[in-house]
Amino acid sequence: MKILIVDDEKRIIEVLEAYLEREGYEIHSADNGIDALKKAKSLSPDLIILDLMLPDISGEEVCRLVRKGSDVPILMLTAKSSEDDRINGIVMGADDYVSKPFSPREVVVRVQAILRRVKKADKSESLAFNKGRLIIDLIKKEVAASRELISLTPNEYKLLTNMALNPGRVYSRLDLLEKIQDEGIFYDGYERSIDTHIKNLRKKIEWDPRQPVFILTVFGMGYKFGGLRDAANTAG
């Protein structure tokens, strides 16, 4: 599996490269944001380790641009350690967050944990949540709520599956808009259309749309998926 390390400190790259290669990963590196974006596109890595303090463009901006076209897992490295900084990193689309200084062994463990989660999700043909209250068949592209098939629009299905595959991750309205707008052209007011999609989606999958269980509002930030994944998933 390929891992792209993005950091402007050569020593950090060398240390992480040594530890990760020992675990059998193929390592590539970049010491600035522009090079990172090029390699993220050309290499299609399985995971990106991304420092936030880069010499040209910020790691947050690199993360945002990568997220426009890819769901590749991102592990952020940063000297910023406040709670707000960690929250912002997750909101930007990071899957995990490690503060500097860090233990290389901890980074390896976190990388392995992220990749295990991704591998498990990729193998699943269906996702089931809250003891079968919500089931998403990824092959048939069907959704069942309380064991009854429901009709979703293509945009509603895209929103639901993207969020369900990344439970707990906070998506801004722009993040979600980018998931459904294939052409990537946005106009004023388009972000608010996400609220309408979310409202309609809640009516279809929630027992009580006023007290949602699956599509949760994160005030001032956006939305996240709050369903609890069942241990064994079936599309039946």
Rank of each mutant, 00 (worst) to 15 (best):
S58R: 09
G24I: 06
I34R: 13
R202Y: 04
L37I: 08
M163L: 10
V62H: 13
K158Y: 01
E9Y: 05
K100C: 05
P101M: 08
I5Q: 12
R64Q: 12
F225H: 07
I34C: 02
L201D: 04
V62G: 13
E17H: 03
E125Y: 05
M76H: 02
K203W: 00
L65A: 05
P167Q: 12
I185R: 12
I198K: 05
C63I: 05
R210F: 03
P104L: 10
N233C: 15
Y157Q: 04
G236T: 03
P104Q: 10
G220A: 08
K80V: 01
V15I: 15
I135H: 04
P167N: 12
S58T: 15
K41V: 02
Y171I: 02
L20H: 09
E23T: 03
E17R: 15
A145L: 00
E106C: 01
A144V: 00
L115P: 03
L165G: 12
T161R: 14
L47Y: 02
K131F: 04
P45R: 10
L160R: 08
A18Q: 10
G236Q: 11
S58M: 03
K203S: 10
R11E: 07
Q112H: 14
E178L: 10
K204M: 02
D56T: 13
V91Y: 12
E61V: 01
I205Q: 01
D137Q: 07
Y19V: 12
A36G: 05
G33T: 13
Q211P: 00
L152E: 01
I139H: 03
E9I: 13
K179W: 03
W207Q: 03
S103R: 08
K199H: 14
I27Y: 11
V6I: 15
Y19E: 14
L50C: 13
S172Q: 15
